[in-house]
Design a binder for these strands. Structure first.
Lengths: 158, 158
DNA sequence: ATAAAGTGGATAATTATTATCCGCGTTATA
DNA sequence: TATAACGCGGATAATAATTATCCACTTTAT
């Protein structure tokens, strides 16, 4: 039971897009290269972020991706949800039904507890936004962030 | 990202073992049958529960499994941990390293948040015990539980 | 001795996740 | 208006995780 690596990649991708000047756009391949992700699969992740309305895509020669929302309006949870989907961490496989020979389907003693646990988990993921991560990275890694900014200027298209 | 079905099966297995008279023991195959689980794989799950000191096994002709702890001392979390292992839901894949070209390995902006989220999730799983589930099942499904008790008396060995 | 149980290792089957490929639509620009 | 660089979506393959099976072994009641 492990979170998909796509969630982490997406978070950093969005962090990069957040450094992009307004109106500018960054090709998917450039991002995937910088993150060391497989280009084709990473494109799929970007699609999910587009579907979730977190980023927008621009087709054509000077196309690419950019943020759709402000950094303070993108919670880690939003990205998690976009990539992992809304299926819950736990779903009963109906063991109770067999054990007690019940008529009704789908009843399980664990459902409520698990739902509560998941809510609790999600609540924490809703606490932090891209804006707060951006601040954190700026404070802790200023020189490296400067270099990244430089790279973005080279790769972006307007 | 889904919890293993083995966790649910294990919870109900332990619930069954909890209805067992003291000193009695129940063969693994009987349990797996009642739960509709694959016998051989279910045996592996039982092994994990033994390793986690939640149940004990007795080899030999009149062998089987029984609880090692009292129902009120077995939290859902203990079972979850026994089956899923202690690896966390999230582990960084080092994307940040590539993005910022850092020297240090293993630093990730998400680690703290994810750790906190997971703790929060675990806390909820620690709230409920086998004892409380047993009570719940007794209140809601009394007649069916009676039948289960009957079945246990048939299958158990002392 | 034998049969019924658990143990541990090797291995296969299944499912989920990650990755690639290709043909298509869109758009800047030569 | 042709072309090249990009995103889009579907099909498919490769890899990894999970679930399942098999077998030789130990233990123990009868």
């Amino acid at each position: 039971m492990q979170m998909k690596t796509g969630v982490e990649q997406s978070v950093y991708a969005i962090l990069i897009l957040n450094m992009l000047p307004d109106k500018a756009v960054l090709p998917g391949e450039a991002i995937s290269q910088q993150l060391g992700a497989s280009p084709t699969y990473f494109q799929k992740l970007l699609r999910k972020l587009v579907s979730a309305n977190l980023i927008t895509s621009v087709p054509g020669v000077k196309g690419g991706f950019k943020l759709r929302k402000k950094a303070e309006d993108i919670r880690i949870y939003d990205i998690y949800l976009a990539i992992e989907g809304q299926q819950s961490l736990y779903s009963s496989s109906g063991v109770m039904h067999g054990m007690l020979d019940l008529e009704e389907e789908g009843c399980c003693l664990l459902t409520d507890l698990m739902q509560e646990a998941e809510s609790s988990w999600q609540t924490v993921l809703k606490r932090q936004t891209i804006a707060s991560l951006y601040e954190e990275i700026n404070v802790g890694y200023q020189p490296k962030v400067q270099l990244l900014q430089q790279w973005i200027k080279e790769k972006m298209v307007m």
